[in-house]
C-alpha cells in the first residue's frame, strides 16, 4: 500500500473512532442540555443547572495548586479517606472471597458445610448491620471498611466458587492425566480457568463498594464523601451536593474503566479462545 493510501486509511479509522465517540456521547450531551434548560426555566434550588454544578465541582474538588495536581483541600479531607476505606474494604473482600471461594470450590465437604452460612450471609442486607458495625468497631474507619468488605465479599466468593466448580472437565481430566503438581495445577489450570468468573464477581463488587462507601459515611462518620453529602444537604448547598454526586459517578466510571483494562490484559487468552461473536455478551 502506498503512503498516500496508508494515510487515507488511518484518517478513515480516526474518523470512524470519532464517530463512535460522538455516537456514544450524544445522548449524555443532549440530557445535559435539557437539564440545563429545564433547571433554568424551573428555577429550582434543589436541582440547579448543570453549569452551576460544574462551577461548584471545580471550586470544591479541583481548586488546588498545580503541585497538588489541582486537587483541593476538600478533596483531601473527604475524598481520600473514602477512597482509602473503599480500597481496604474491597481489597479485603477480594482476598477473602477468592481464597474462600477456591477452597469451598475445590473441597466439596467444605462447600456443603459452608453453603448455608453463605446463603444466610448473602440474604442479610449489609446496611442493616450498620448499627452493629458501630458497636463492634466504634466510630472509626474500621466500621466503614468492615461494611464495604462484607458487602463485596459475597459476589466475589460465589462467583469464584462457580468458576472453580464450572471448570471444563476435559481440561481437569487432561491436567490429572499429565500428573501436574498441585502448584502447577492451581496456577496453570484452576486459577486461569476460574478467573473469568472471579472477574465478574469483582466487577459487580465495585459498584457495591461505592454504594456502601457512601451509605456507611452518611451515619456516624467524621469525614468522607457520604459525610460531605449529608453536610451540604443540611446547609442547603445543593450545587455542592450535586458536585459530590457527579464526583461519585466519575469515580464509578474510572474504576470500571481501570477494571476493564486490567481484565482485558489478564484475560486476553480467554477472549481469544471464546467463540466468534461472543464478544460483549
Amino acid at each position: 500500500m502506498s503512503d498516500h493510501g496508508a494515510k487515507r486509511s488511518s484518517l478513515a479509522a480516526s474518523a470512524q473512532a470519532m464517530g463512535r465517540g460522538v455516537q456514544s456521547l450524544w445522548l449524555l450531551a443532549a440530557l445535559l442540555v435539557v437539564w440545563e434548560i429545564a433547571a433554568r426555566l424551573a428555577g429550582s434550588l434543589f436541582v440547579p443547572p448543570v453549569s452551576q454544578i460544574f462551577v461548584a465541582f471545580v471550586d470544591t474538588w479541583l481548586s488546588g495548586s498545580p503541585s497538588s495536581l489541582f486537587l483541593s483541600d476538600q478533596f483531601r479531607v473527604d475524598v481520600l479517606p473514602s477512597l482509602a476505606r473503599l480500597g481496604l474494604g474491597y481489597g479485603a473482600a477480594a482476598a477473602i472471597g477468592i481464597s474462600a471461594g477456591i477452597l469451598i470450590g475445590v473441597w466439596r465437604p467444605a462447600g456443603a458445610f459452608f453453603n448455608p452460612l453463605i446463603r444466610l450471609g448473602m440474604s442479610v442486607p449489609v446496611t442493616a448491620l450498620l448499627p452493629i458495625a458501630i458497636v463492634l468497631f466504634g466510630i472509626t474507619s474500621g466500621m466503614n471498611v468492615f461494611l464495604i468488605a462484607l458487602g463485596c465479599l459475597w459476589p466475589i466468593l460465589i462467583n469464584t466458587y462457580d468458576g472453580v466448580r464450572g471448570l471444563d472437565r476435559t481440561v481437569v481430566t487432561a491436567a490429572r492425566s499429565m500428573r501436574l503438581t498441585r502448584r502447577r495445577y492451581f496456577l496453570q489450570v484452576l486459577l486461569p480457568g476460574a478467573s473469568p468468573a472471579i472477574f465478574v464477581g469483582m466487577r459487580i463488587s465495585i459498584g457495591i463498594a461505592l454504594v456502601l462507601m457512601v451509605i456507611s459515611e452518611l451515619y456516624a462518620a467524621t469525614a468522607g464523601l457520604g459525610f460531605y453529602i449529608v453536610s451540604q444537604q443540611r446547609l442547603f448547598r445543593f450545587p455542592e451536593l450535586w458536585a459530590a454526586i457527579v464526583l461519585l459517578a466519575l469515580l464509578g466510571i474510572l474504576f470500571n474503566a481501570i477494571f476493564a483494562v486490567v481484565e482485558r490484559v489478564l484475560l486476553r487468552w480467554h477472549r481469544n479462545v471464546r467463540p466468534e461473536g461472543a464478544e460483549g455478551h
Binding site: 448499627p131 458501630i134 466510630i139 451515619y219 456516624a220 462518620a221 467524621t222 449529608v230
Partner: peptide, 14 residues
C-alpha cells in the same frame, strides 16, 4: 472537635 451524627437514642450508649 469532631462532630459525629448519631440518633439521640444511641448517643448516651456511645
Amino acid at each position: 472537635v469532631s462532630f459525629v451524627a448519631l440518633p439521640f437514642a444511641e448517643q448516651i450508649p456511645a
